[in-house]
Design a protein around this nucleic acid. Structure first.
Length: 221
DNA sequence: TAGTGACC
DNA sequence: TCCT
């Protein structure tokens, strides 16, 4: 189709940074034009599947980020727990289809022979954070998680497979890609804070993070 | 006790 | 690592 980010401008694989087994950081994966095109698609998705404020299981405390999803399944959280579901929790409508541009990004970055089923779209305002956590609600842990950042720079914290492992901080800037796979598929990670006024892509020091995931076990060959 | 916690 |  048309109108997707120009992924032909992606950096060559040689400029990927391997941070350890299964962790790949691709600074500047999307150039400015690709970022603008992708953001326009996200804004369109958010009109059809409005941002909602997830709440913590059990405590019912609201998250500081707002979110929506696209693809056959979407990640949601409320007082009863975390889960993937095929419909928006407020409208009851199916999630919008995944844009072709995101399928292209998955194909370039994930190197997994089946398409992603969910793209979680997180919107961070200047005070939003995401506590250290693992992405482990997916039934297919052989597939990586592919993350794309747009807008304000985030201080991203990444640790190991145990919550007690050493962590390090990485700045994720607009256009950067990050892939968790293989031995690093379940590493703890989170967002400490957003650095204000680090990008003019999204007004008000906003940040969007897209995470592409395979949710159900891939069909047998 | 766990924990998209708080903190770093 | 330390709470609640």
């Amino acid at each position: 189709m048309t109108g997707g980010p120009d992924l032909a401008s992606a950096r060559p694989a040689a400029q990927r940074l391997d941070l350890g087994p299964g962790l790949t950081f691709v600074p500047g994966y999307l150039d400015r034009l690709a970022q603008e095109r992708l953001l326009a698609e996200i804004r369109d998705l958010a009109r059809r599947a409005p941002l909602f404020t997830p709440r913590m299981p059990r405590t019912d405390q609201p998250f500081s980020v707002r979110m929506t999803n696209c693809g056959p399944l979407g990640w949601v959280s409320d007082v009863s727990g975390y889960r993937y579901q095929p419909t928006h929790p407020q409208t009851g409508e199916p999630w919008p289809a995944m844009p072709e541009s995101l399928l292209d990004a998955w194909n370039e970055l994930a190197r997994f022979p089946h398409p992603p089923e969910a793209c979680l779209i997180n919107f961070y305002g200047p005070g939003a954070r995401m506590g250290l956590h693992q992405d482990k609600d997916e039934g297919e842990l052989a597939a990586p998680v592919v993350s794309l950042s747009l807008g304000a720079t985030a201080l991203f914290r990444i640790g190991g497979l145990s919550r007690r492992d050493r962590t390090r901080s990485i700045r994720l800037s607009s256009g950067d890609a990050f892939v968790f796979g293989g031995a690093a598929r379940l590493v703890f990670h989170g967002i400490d804070r957003i650095l204000p006024e680090t990008s003019d892509l999204i007004p008000g020091s906003g940040r969007v993070n897209l995470t592409l995931r395979r949710v159900t076990p891939a069909p047998a060959a």
